[in-house]
Design a protein around this nucleic acid. Structure first.
Lengths: 250, 250
DNA sequence: GCGACACTTCGGCGACGGCCGCAATGTGCG
DNA sequence: CGCACATTGCGGCCGTCGCCGAAGTGTCGC
């Protein structure tokens, strides 16, 4: 009404700012976004349970967040997979969450960055291994002729044998879940191995102590046994992977 | 209720995120913040008029923004000067305002950064010159023995003569407004010349075409005449000032 | 000291928005 | 083909929040 000052520009920006801020100003929606910072694509139901609201409530929130460009969705069967729209949004959310009120938050402010670093290295995605390690695994399988990139992922004959050997048996393909599926990473922007094989591999890695969960989140740590195993089976140097992350992503 | 996932960290972050987002989710508060992106310290009344709300409404909003660490205030007499709390907040607000909804904002997205660059170089602050140029003027006056830093700013005898010479007369010190006052810059974090002399100098610079307003905002451009004048009078190289900004602040 | 002025506090009004439950839709799976 | 389940759409309730006007406090300037 009054602002002859900055005119049109301010007006546009104002709409954009309030729109985005309004989307994040709700506790439930904020909980969704923060949960999604782990890089996974959650289902609507998971998010609803996580935030402690009814599925219908979550559904509405998610629709608004998607419409607002904060989240992106992907329908697969009867599930609706939700992820952050893009890394810029993730950065923005982290920045905002890290902003301190003047006299508050004595502890636990720096943890976000550290946690994200860990997540960028290795984490679970649904039930398989993602992050830099997950991408490295897919790359190694691919370069060794065990996995083919055609319309997703597909194990070669040698790949199936390898899998059988490593896991001590092939994962049952009971349902309609394919043995291999590719899953795109938010941090890496490259595909990693999902599907029944990805899940079995992840379970195996956890069972064997190759990787262990960090805290209660999705982040994974690679232990000595894991470093040895990934090196022997796929020629992956996990330590170098982590180092390159520390060097590059500070 | 359900979130055993990320536990405490998420909970803390969630509060911080919703708190900050909630502050920016209101149109009036957003208008305040965007107006303050120009680096000035506005008074509460100015902001109220700018946003088109009653002073009482503005007062409440400002109190909340200050309490939330978004804005900072400084009481001077019967005025309450408001500025952005720190550059990080400014950056955050710009980032948020620049975030596009999926299908919107065809034009005018990059303007923010450019405008801010211009503002960092030279702008008006109330009625005097601020930004890098403003600081340079104060520095030059000081180093030439024309201005003393004691409890604010004070012109020396030589300084008063210089002022009289440049302006063709001393500014009238009718009210209680001091001839020289120091004013702290948000972008530069260093003081520049305010008060009656600062205002007179700014008016003179505008009158003489040394500087001209860019658009309808607070940003100033230094013309050839200005470059010559600032060089002759104070040995300030305006072109170098601007270049150093372009080089350093990309 | 006395008006003018900037700002703040308070009470109340109105609207927006989040939450739920219920019913409907569409998809896997036997 | 039919059940189970994930998700969505639709009222309806209720709390929160932004807005204002009026009254109060402190400062400026004569």
């Amino acid at each position: 009404m009054c602002g002859t000052d900055d005119g049109r520009v301010t007006s546009d920006s104002q709409i954009a700012l309030t729109r985005l801020a309004g989307l994040l100003a709700d506790g439930t929606r904020a909980a969704f976004c923060l949960a999604l910072l782990d890089g996974r694509a959650w289902t609507a139901g998971e998010l609803a349970r996580h935030a402690g609201v009814a599925p219908s409530t979550a559904s509405e929130h998610l629709s608004r967040l998607v419409a607002g460009g904060v989240l992106a969705e992907e329908h697969q069967g009867r599930h609706r997979y939700i992820r952050l729209a893009d890394p810029a949004v993730a950065q923005l959310i982290e920045d905002m969450a890290a902003h301190d009120p003047p006299a508050a938050s004595p502890p636990g402010t720096l943890r976000v960055a550290g946690a994200r670093r860990a997540l960028a290295f290795a984490r679970t995605c649904y039930d398989h291994i993602a992050g830099r390690l997950g991408v490295a695994i897919a790359d190694a399988l691919s370069s060794r002729g065990l996995l083919e990139r055609r319309a997703g992922f597909a194990f070669t004959e040698a790949g199936t044998a390898w899998l059988d050997d490593v896991l001590g048996g092939l994962p049952g393909v009971t349902g309609r879940r394919p043995l291999a599926r590719q899953c795109l990473d938010w941090t890496e922007r490259r595909p990693h191995l999902a599907g029944a094989a990805g899940a079995a591999l992840c379970r195996h890695a956890l069972d064997q102590g190759w990787v262990t969960r960090i805290g209660s989140g999705r982040a994974l740590a690679v232990g000595p046994a894991g470093a040895e195993a990934f090196s022997r089976l796929l020629d992956i140097d996990a330590a170098a992977l982590r180092l390159s992350l520390d060097g590059g992503g500070a």
